[in-house]
Design a protein around this nucleic acid. Structure first.
Lengths: 127, 127
DNA sequence: ATTATTGCAAAAGTTTTGCATGCCG
DNA sequence: CGGCATGCAAAACTTTTGCAATAAT
């Protein structure tokens, strides 16, 4: 992967945030430094970085759009059904170690992974 | 909700299948009985039925399209990363009762639900 | 110089919607 | 008759892609 200023800016923007921006948000932010950057470039780079496992791409059924995360440590998310915020949960995947073993009981295929997220009302929206 | 022959056909098609058809598949099947039915009508009815909790709409990040399920009993799914089949798992949600309690530990918001699915290789593709 | 990356624009894919017409109660 | 549902077509939205120009090594 060859260096590019655009990709560096995209990555540094993601690094600076603990929320989980969409491609559109990355685009409009990086656009301030690179007014000519195109949305296609943003998507290409986000996918490339995800492919290289430098970032992670998350899909949440309730939200139409993909969200990108600089934190590649395995962790789970909470989606607020009120404000749509995506928030990291403190619980560790170790707390859910048995989940795939449980699902494998009585199932003929090979389970290799799972996708889990939670939804509800975030602290802010509760007030 | 007023009766319509199209909606009845859509529902009866879903009832007849234990897999989890996409809107496109529902469309091309119901089209045999109603050659003039439009994709818009299919989407409107599927959403309406899901809204009324007669069917369920499922989104799987790895698959681009929504899948619809006549079975509204809570259950989990397995998605084959080889053939993209969506398969019901035998494990019951009761086996995962503690999942939301675990996630709530150290989290400030209100957890009201979760979304969980598994992926891997199905029996057929293993051969 | 070679190759990856960009910007632009067009296309692809899924889902939604406006509107005139038709069907249900 | 009154109102919900339909068919059609267009639009909305997110994401991908072809291609000529540009930037990186």
């Amino acid at each position: 992967m060859k260096y590019s200023r655009q990709r560096a800016a995209i990555l540094s923007f993601l690094q600076s945030r603990r929320d989980h921006p969409t491609a559109e948000l990355v685009y409009s932010s990086v656009k301030e430094e690179f007014p000519n950057i195109s949305l296609g470039t943003v998507y290409r780079n986000l996918n490339q970085l995800a492919e290289a496992r430098i970032i992670t791409k998350h899909s949440f059924g309730m939200l139409g759009t993909d969200h990108f995360d600089y934190n590649t440590d395995p962790h789970y998310h909470f989606v607020c059904s009120c404000c749509n915020a995506v928030i990291d949960l403190p619980a560790s995947p170790d707390d859910f170690l048995s989940i795939e073993a449980e699902a494998a009981k009585g199932f003929d295929g090979l389970i290799q992974g799972h996708s889990l997220y939670f939804c509800g009302i975030c602290k802010n929206c509760l007030n």
